[in-house]
């Protein structure tokens, strides 16, 4: 959920950006990274660990940990927490969706 009121900050959540995540249409806002927009759309499980396939989330959000890699417009291993969202982006994760909410 977006912050509606804040005593110090003003957020400009006006210009919508439309993209798809695992073929599902989703909406983010100008200035969002892909990771931020996914988080706002309720996605918490971003990837699976390499060996044990344990679910991983947006742990650091600043490009340090590698938990948020996805395929973006056909390019593998994109750090979604560092990449700005653009219109019509096609974002695909490798996670097993059935287990998600």
């Amino acid at each position: 959920m977006r912050v509606k009121e804040h005593p110090i900050l003003n957020f400009n959540h006006q210009n919508e950006i439309h993209f798809t995540y695992n073929e599902k249409p989703m909406v983010g806002y100008e200035g969002d990274t892909i990771g931020a927009a996914l988080y706002d759309n309720g996605i918490r499980h971003f990837s699976d660990s390499v060996v044990h396939k344990r679910p991983r989330g947006l742990y650091c959000a600043i490009g340090n940990c590698g938990s948020c890699y996805m395929q973006v417009n056909g390019v593998e291993n994109v750090k979604t927490c560092m990449t700005l969202l653009e219109d019509d982006m096609r974002v695909i994760s490798e996670v097993d969706e059935d287990k998600d909410d």
């Binding site: 969002d32 931020a36 988080y39 499980h45 991983r56 959000a61």
Partner: peptide, 18 residues
């Protein structure tokens, strides 16, 4: 997922307003 560093929380909340 759901366990985050304080920096991630700050980023999500104070930069993206989520």
């Amino acid at each position: 997922p759901g366990i985050y560093g304080a920096g991630a929380i700050q980023t999500i909340m104070n930069i993206y307003g989520i």
